[in-house]
């Protein structure tokens, strides 16, 4: 693909960037990599307490803990990578204005470290599923293309936010709001099944809606994805990615002049 060919010569730099971020992140921390698990687990605990105990709303006929954790995990990955990306280029201006390398390496390293956290968090998810005795089915394998779709969408959004923030620092301000907005537009704390049909279509414009809902379907419910939804969302995300990456490589040449 487009990006892989460009990055091949710089794969070591990408590796070192990922390694650097991990080093910096866990230097002088007490529990280190456990943070990767603690964050989604504590969010899950909070949501379970509020929606399961305080408000006592029922979404599905399976444990709340699984329901929320399945939603929180992809959301944490997406928002973590996007938040990292926003200031990733503008914050590294001393590198950008002095040395050439494909600029997407910096936001991409953010996607990569959040993917590592995601994988660690996913192991906990598997343990939770075993604990609640959820039967494994072949449909579970759908999780692989769904994760690919999630990574591709997250990459596109990260590149876009990172590039725009080079030009306008307003993006940083707006993105905090955008993330909150997207959080509610994604069925993390609710299920799309409880939504009126009129709004469903609108919500499905957000690829995360499809991804989060389908992840619950294929892992906990043991059902397959809806094929036409999968096809449409994949096409949409691919289109977004190609467009964003083209624009990115185009305006990248001017980053050092405007940063």
């Amino acid at each position: 693909m487009l990006m892989i060919r460009r990055l091949y010569d710089y794969k070591d730099l990408l590796l070192v960037f990922i390694w650097r971020e991990l080093l910096i992140r866990y230097k002088q921390t007490l529990i280190g990599v456990l943070w990767a698990v603690l964050q989604p687990l504590s969010l899950m605990g909070l949501f379970t307490f509020i929606f399961g105990i305080v408000l006592n709303t029922a979404h599905k006929d399976y444990p709340y803990v699984l329901f929320f954790y399945a939603g929180v995990l992809p959301w944490t990955f997406f928002s973590g990578a996007a938040n990292f990306a926003v200031t990733s280029l503008s914050g590294n201006f001393n590198l950008i204005t002095k040395i050439y390398f494909p600029r997407e390496i910096i936001p991409l390293s953010g996607v990569a470290i959040n993917l590592i956290d995601y994988v660690v968090g996913f192991i906990v998810y598997l343990l939770l599923m075993a604990f609640y005795r959820i039967p494994l089915t072949w449909n579970f394998l759908w999780i692989v293309p769904l994760i690919c779709l999630l990574v591709l969408y997250t990459t596109s959004v990260s590149l876009l936010l990172a590039a725009l923030n080079v030009y306008y620092r307003d993006v940083k301000m707006a993105s905090a709001f955008l993330m909150l907005f997207l959080f509610f537009a994604t069925p993390v704390i609710y299920s799309i099944d409880t939504v009126d049909n009129r709004w469903k279509l609108l919500l499905f414009l957000n690829p995360l809606t499809f991804i989060v809902e389908s992840m619950r379907r294929v892992t906990i419910e043991g059902r397959g994805v809806v094929p036409w939804q999968m096809a449409l969302e994949t096409a949409g995300v691919l289109l977004l990615y190609v467009l964003v990456y083209r624009v990115f490589t185009r305006i990248e040449r001017a980053f050092a002049d405007v940063i």
């Binding site: 730099l13 230097k27 590198l95 002095k98 040395i99």
Partner: peptide
């Protein structure tokens, strides 16, 4: 480009870690 020495250095990392960091930025594998 030795345009500004240490442009790719990170203060929290050790000298050894910075050799890898800065070296790859300068195009070494």
């Amino acid at each position: 480009p030795l345009i500004e020495l240490g442009a790719g250095m990170h203060l929290d990392l050790t000298g050894m870690e910075n050799i890898y960091m800065n070296g790859t930025i300068l195009g070494l594998s």
